[in-house]
Design a protein around this nucleic acid. Structure first.
Lengths: 212, 212, 212, 212
DNA sequence: CATGAATGAGAGTTCATTCAT
DNA sequence: GATGAATGAACTCTCATTCAT
C-alpha cells in the first residue's frame, strides 16, 4: 500500500490507492469525492483534473487492481509446470494479492454493481464520455473473465491429463473465486494467519478437493 | 420463497421481500425509499408507518433472510446424522436458500457494510432509536456468527471423529461461506444448473476437500 | 423539520409567473433555482416537487406565455373581419400581451436558446425524461411557428385581396416579430406610452408599411 | 468581417471574433473561458494574459461589434443626402452588418443583460477593476444610444422636412432596432435571401411605413 | 507568453424524513 | 394508514481565476 510520498506532487496512482482505501471503508455510494480528496490532501474539485468523474475514478481503481493481479498471475500461468503445481501457484498468487491489498480486492468484489449502474447516471454532455466509459468497462469485464478463465482452464487441463478428478470446472472455479474474494471481507492484517499462511490453507483445500 | 400476496393489504413482510429485490438491483445507497415504496404501490412517506427509518428497514430485511436460512439449517444440524451427512445437508440447505432467494442472499452479502455505517449516520435525535438499532444489529451479527459456527462445528466434529482429514476448520468454513455467498452474484434462475444441482456440486466439492 | 411557509398553498402557476420575473431579470443561466424558489417562499428543493428540473421549469414558463398569447390572438384571427382589420387586431393583441407581461415576453425572446441547449445537459437517468422534454419542446416550437404563421397568413391574404401592397410576407412578418419582441426589452410600465398606446403606434406603423 | 488570420500568433482581436462565435452559440453564461480558449488553441489560463476577466472579454466583444457597425453607419449618416436616402443607407448598412456578422450581432442583442449583471458579481478585490469596468460599460451604452439616435434623428429630420409622415419617431426607431436585431436570430447564410436582399426588403418596408 | 494544477464558491439535484390533512 | 408538500443536508460537478514553473 503506497502511502503519500510527501505533500507535494500527487499523481493519478496515488489517488487511486487512496481511493481504494476509502472505498473499502465506505463503499462506492457512501464515499464522497471529498473523502477521497482529503485522503491525498486535495479538494474535491481538484480530483476532476485527474479523473473525469466519480465513475471513471472507480473504473480506474478497479483496472489498477485487476491489472496488478493479472500480471502476477500470468507469471505462474505461463510457467512450465504441472497443472497441479500451476493451480497451486495461481491460488497462492491470487490469495497473496488479495491479502496484500485488501482495499482494492474488496473494491473489485463490492463495487462491480456500482460500475454497472454507473452508465445510467452518466451525463450525455459529451457522447464521448459515455462511449469511452462503456468501452473501458466492457474491457474490464472481459479481462475479469479472462482472469477467471485462467483458473478454469488450468482445472480443465488437469482433468484432461488425469491429474485432477472429474468436476464441474466452471462451478468449482466460481466457488474458488467466491472463497478468495470473500477473504477481503474478513482478513485482518496481523491476525492469526499471515497472507502466506492463508494462501497455504487455500492451496491445500482446493488441491484436496480436486485430487483423485 | 413465498411472496406476492394480494395487491391490496400490504404488510411488513411484503415490503421486506420487495425491498430485498430492489436492494439486490441497486444496493442500499442507490435504493431510495421511493423505489421500495413503488414496488409495493405505496409512497415513501407511507413506509414510515411500517419502519422507523431506512436503516431499520435494511436491518429487517437482513433479519428476515437470516432467520429464514437458519431455520432451514437447524433442521439438518439437529438431525441424528453422521457429520459428513450433516455437513452435506447443511451445504445443500444453504445453497438452496441462496439460489431460491438471490435477492435476500445478496443483501446479506453486500449490504452488511451499510448496516455498519448506519449507526454513524443515525440522527442523534432519539437516543432510543440508536440504542435499539445497535442492539438489534449486534444480535444480527451474533446470529450470523452462530450460523457460520454451525458449519465450523460440524467440520470440527467430523475431524474429531476421524470422518474428515485435519484442516484449519475456521478458514475452510470461511472459504465455504465465500463460495456460497458468491453464488448470489452469478447465479441466474434458469441457467445451466438448477439450485439443487448447484447444491450437489458444492456438496461434492467440499466433501472431497475434507475427505481423508 | 418541515416548516409551514407563510404563504398558503403555492401552486404550479404561481411558480411559473414568479420564475418568469426572475428569468427576465437575470436570464436563464444566471437564474438559480434558489432565486426562483425565494420568489415564492420555497426552498430550491421544493421546486422539484412541481417541476422535474430547471429545463422543464423553463419550458413550462414558455408554454404558459405562448398559450396565453395564442389564445388572445386566435380570438381575433378567427373573427369575421377584413384582413387589414384582422392584422390590426392581431398586432394590438400581441403588443398588449407583451407589454402586460414583459417578463414572460422577454423569456420567450431570450431563453429560447437555453431551451435548445437544455437537451444536452439533461441526464439520461430516465429516457422518458429526455424524450418527454424533446417532445414538448418540439411542440412548443411548432406552436411558435403557428403563431408566427397567423401573422404571415393574414398579410398574405391581404395581399391576395388587394388590401395590401406586394411585399415579402415572410420577411415582413419576421421584422414585425422582431419589433414586437424587442418591446419587452425597453418597455417600462408607467413610461411615456401605455401598452395600448404603444399598440396603436405599432398598428399604425405596420399598416402604413403595407398600405398600397 | 475579416477574421481567421494565421494559426500561430494569436492576438486580442482574433480572440474577440472567436469569442463572439462561441457566445453566439452558447450565450454568455454557458460559454466557458475554456470554450473560448479552445477556439483559438489556447488554454483558459492564457486568456488572462489578454483580458482581465470574462466580463471584460465580453465588453471587448461588444465594443468591437459596436465600433465596427457605427463606423459603417457614420459614413452614410454624414453623407450629403436626402433624409430618405440617408435612412435607406443606414438601414442597409445596419442590416448588412448584422447579416455579415451574425455572431457579434447576436451578442449585442443577447448579452447586454450579462453585461449589466456583470458589475454585481465583480470581485471587490481591486476597486480599479470595477471602476474601469463600469466606466467602459457606461461608455458602451452611451455609444449604443448614440447609434440608435442616428436613426431617430434622421427620421425626425425627414418629418421636419416633410419627406416622412408624422410618426412617433422614438417608437418607430425602436421597432426598427427590434426588427434588425431579430435578424441575427433567424438569418442563415445561404438561405433564401442574401444579406443585401434582406437589406432591400427592410429598406422598402421602413420607407413604406414612413412615406406620406 | 503559456500552461497544468489547484481551489473556493456555488449550482443543480437527490433524498430521507416530517407533518398537516 | 396513507399521502402531498416541504425541507435541510449533502453530493457531484463546473468554472472563473490564480500561480509556480
Amino acid at each position: 500500500m503506497a502511502r503519500k510520498p510527501a505533500d507535494q506532487s500527487v499523481d493519478r496512482e496515488d489517488i487511486l490507492w487512496a481511493a481504494a482505501e476509502v472505498l473499502h471503508r465506505n463503499g462506492y455510494d457512501s464515499t464522497t469525492m471529498k473523502d477521497i480528496a482529503a485522503q491525498v490532501n486535495l479538494t474535491a474539485a481538484s480530483l476532476y483534473h485527474h479523473f473525469k468523474n466519480k465513475d471513471f475514478l472507480l473504473l480506474n481503481v478497479l483496472e489498477l487492481g485487476l491489472d496488478f493481479t493479472i500480471e502476477k498471475l500470468e507469471t505462474v500461468a505461463n510457467a512450465d509446470l504441472s497443472n497441479a503445481e500451476k493451480l497451486a501457484g495461481m491460488i497462492r498468487s491470487h490469495v497473496v494479492c488479495v491479502t496484500g491489498n485488501v482495499a482494492v480486492g474488496a473494491a473489485m468484489v463490492f463495487e462491480i454493481r456500482s460500475l454497472l449502474n454507473a452508465s445510467l447516471s452518466s451525463k450525455i454532455g459529451d457522447d464521448t464520455f459515455m462511449e469511452e466509459f462503456v468501452a473501458r468497462r466492457n474491457q474490464f469485464f472481459a479481462r475479469r473473465d479472462y482472469f477467471e478463465g485462467l483458473f478454469r482452464d488450468t482445472i480443465q487441463a488437469g482433468m484432461d491429463t488425469g491429474e485432477f478428478r472429474e468436476v464441474d470446472a466452471a462451478t468449482v472455479t466460481r466457488a474458488m473465486m467466491g472463497a478468495h474474494n470473500w477473504i477481503s471481507v474478513w482478513f485482518k492484517e496481523g491476525g492469526r494467519l499471515s497472507g502466506e499462511e492463508l494462501a497455504d490453507v487455500m492451496v491445500d483445500t482446493w488441491l484436496a478437493a480436486l485430487r483423485k
